[in-house]
């Protein structure tokens, strides 16, 4: 296909993907409490409101705590599981791996309803701990997949060499294996963190009325009258996601994480 068509096509896609964000960015700069684009002047008051109003600060704090803790928990589940499945051959390995993939593969509303049934039965419905654990399970797929990729990238001969030199499995893990999967763990954590920040249905079903997260707050604001603060919080979200994935793209191997098998064959 010729070059002009190709560039034009990619440009149109770029516009489609960025136009809504540009409009939101413009709206967030309005001086008055209007949702106008182009904005009626430039001001950052909706960003300061975001950082000073408790109505927004509490959801921000909830979201950050939930994302940070649940991602750590997801990592703690995924790391030993990925290690075990890589290290040993067992007949139930495939079943366990599928179990780790399933929460993310099913339509989210089903997983969310499962969590709701469970927490209502246990009596922790509406508790922040319920949201944290639910998110950890819901997103465990991401670190599981990235860390498994990390283990697969380890040259088995290196491990065997370490063992031949007399290192026991603990020492091998600490000095050889762990440093090699560390960057994959960071990527898995980052994916988990960003998705947890943006997650709505599970957080809403499990404790939406008591633990307000940022997406829940935005949705409620959508229902009861728009304000430009919603635009400024959106911009912050977009920038945060772009920053985190940009860092993974810069320091990690994003094409490989996303499934390209032979990135080294492309020149660049």
């Amino acid at each position: 296909m010729n070059r002009v068509f190709r560039s034009l096509f990619c440009l149109l896609i770029l516009i489609f993907l960025t136009a809504p964000i540009v409009v939101v960015g413009g709206v967030s700069l309005n001086v008055q409490k209007h949702l106008l684009f182009p904005p009626d002047g430039l001001s950052l008051r909706w960003y300061t409101e975001l950082l000073t109003e408790t109505a927004w600060l509490i959801p921000i704090q909830n979201s950050l705590v939930i994302a940070a803790v649940s991602s750590l928990m997801a990592l703690s589940i995924a790391l030993p599981l990925a290690y075990f499945l890589w290290r040993y051959r067992v007949f139930y390995a495939r079943a366990l791996f599928m179990l780790g993939i399933a929460p993310f593969m099913l339509p989210p509303v089903i997983t969310a309803l499962g969590f709701l049934s469970f927490w209502a039965t246990v009596g922790l419905y509406g508790n922040i701990a319920a949201t944290i654990i639910s998110h950890a399970i819901f997103f465990v797929t991401l670190p599981l997949v990235t860390i498994s990729l990390g283990f697969e990238s380890i040259d088995r001969e290196i491990v065997e060499a370490a063992e031949t030199m007399g290192a026991d499995s603990r020492v091998v893990f600490r000095t050889v294996i762990f440093p090699m999967v560390r960057s994959y763990m960071v990527s898995g954590y980052a994916f988990c963190f960003v998705l947890s920040l943006n997650e709505y249905i599970v957080a809403y079903m499990v404790s939406g009325f008591t633990v307000e997260t940022l997406p829940i707050k935005i949705f409620n604001a959508l229902r009861y009258g728009y304000t430009p603060v919603m635009a400024s919080v959106t911009v912050v979200f977009v920038l945060l996601a772009a920053l985190i994935f940009g860092l993974i793209g810069r320091f990690g191997d994003l094409p490989r994480l996303l499934g390209a098998m032979a990135p080294e064959n492309r020149n660049g």
Partner: peptide, 30 residues
């Protein structure tokens, strides 16, 4: 080239990670 690929992938993953609430809000504005 690999570099251009990474930039596109960063954009795509960033959009994919956005909450549906945010996307709904952005499109209702659009």
């Amino acid at each position: 080239r690999r570099k251009a690929q990474v930039i596109w992938l960063v954009l795509l993953v960033s959009v994919l990670s956005l909450s549906a609430v945010i996307i709904g809000f952005a499109w209702s504005l659009m």
